[in-house]
Write a protein that binds this DNA or RNA. Structure first.
Lengths: 219, 219
DNA sequence: GTTGTTCTGCGTGAATCACTGAAAATCGTC
DNA sequence: GACGATTTTCAGTGATTCACGCAGAACAAC
């Protein structure tokens, strides 16, 4: 089948170097591109197409999902492998729905990474065991009605809520958010209320801080 | 001087592997430990002490600063090298104050990383150029009395206004602030209005961010 | 089909914002 | 002490947002 042409997307150059190093002694995988964002990558794909795009995400961002979707629609032949440093099933499922063909968590190692790449190249999907386990565990936990951990709370934020949170923490008024998302101001208020409740925050100052801490907005 | 004994702390195993791989062909650096958190590392240091601990942080968290402080006080001979994937001067400065002897950003590469480790081992501090530039820029701005630098803007605030701003950015409601300062709610509102005008801020989300950026409150 | 979640929206009263004005207290200065 | 500048204090008004609750519509899961 020949060499596997791979593109690497990760906002942190040193991490790209690290992954490149890990894949260095796997000669059948050839890293053609290495960019900060999917946006940077797309134009390069016209001249030098790849088989697989591996993207690393550090924080659950609806825009990332949109970018994956965009990439998949624009280059339908490429297989997208997502590595997420968070463990939110919601977002992972969204990535898959957006067109990602495989998923890895940060718990992974070189062998699993290579396995994932090879699996995708062979036309099959690949989901790390940790993910399937996570989903299983979550169902069990839901059944057991476990107490909310910090992570669980984060997981609970829906896509829409994250969008609202991001816009709000980016200094937009409710009216502006409503216009941008084509919903009513009351709905924006509802979302904000739900966010505060889910995250157990008291004021919107806390909401801003949460958004900053989780890299949803810049300081 | 012999081998450099290094410990690696990163919440994401795959990233630890990546860094380990990058350092593989630097025989004078020996990675003894590789843990998820500083907490996990500390007990290991009693049996197998290291020269340098390199920790990677992905998001600005006050607890991380506390952990670095704790590590530095508990093992005073180890040198802590922090790599942060964010670029907030405040937090980086806090890490340095907490006892970190060096700092890298995610823009770094293998060579700079090795250089940082060697520098620390030789007893010197190491700060990536991007960071020193940032710090320098800040000092220059202060010295040159540039048109409203952050600091100048801060200076413009009166004592009372600063008190109000701090309390507000610390998640207190206007009523709480009023009670604490023994003034009326309307006065609190006035102060906040004046602050926004003086600092040329549009929303109170901006006010919160200003307070965080200027270390008036913790994130 | 049932169940559950998300997204959407509304009502109400309280709190806060944005803007303006203004009196009393404080401070530096002559 | 007198004067001006600044700070601190407080209020009126209308718009916006908060806090809490409630509920239908859309959608996915089982």
């Amino acid at each position: 089948m020949g060499n596997i042409r791979l593109a690497l997307v990760d906002a942190h150059p040193i991490m790209r170097d690290g992954i490149r190093c890990l894949l260095a002694d796997t000669p059948e995988i050839e890293i053609l591109h290495s960019t900060n964002t999917i946006t940077d990558l797309i134009p390069l794909l016209y001249h030098d197409p790849v088989h697989i795009v591996m993207t690393v995400f550090y924080t659950p961002d609806p825009e990332d999902v949109a970018m994956v979707k965009h990439l998949c629609s624009k280059h339908q032949r490429v297989q997208v492998l997502v590595m997420s440093m968070y463990k939110m099933e919601n977002f992972i499922l969204k990535m898959i729905r957006a067109g990602a063909k495989g998923h890895l968590t940060s718990d992974t190692d070189r062998d699993e990474m290579v396995e994932a790449i090879l699996t995708l190249r062979n036309g099959y999907d690949f989901y790390a065991k940790t993910i399937t386990n996570l989903i299983l565990k979550n169902y069990l936990e839901e059944a057991e009605n476990k107490l909310e951990s910090k992570h669980e709370r984060e997981q609970k934020l829906s896509t829409r809520e994250l969008e609202v949170l991001k816009l709000f923490a980016d200094s937009h008024t409710n009216k502006e958010i409503a216009d941008k998302l084509f919903i009513s101001v009351r709905t924006v208020e509802s979302h904000k209320n739900n966010i505060m409740q889910k995250l157990n925050l008291k004021t919107m100052v806390d909401m801003v801080k949460f958004a900053i801490r989780n890299n949803l907005v810049d300081l």
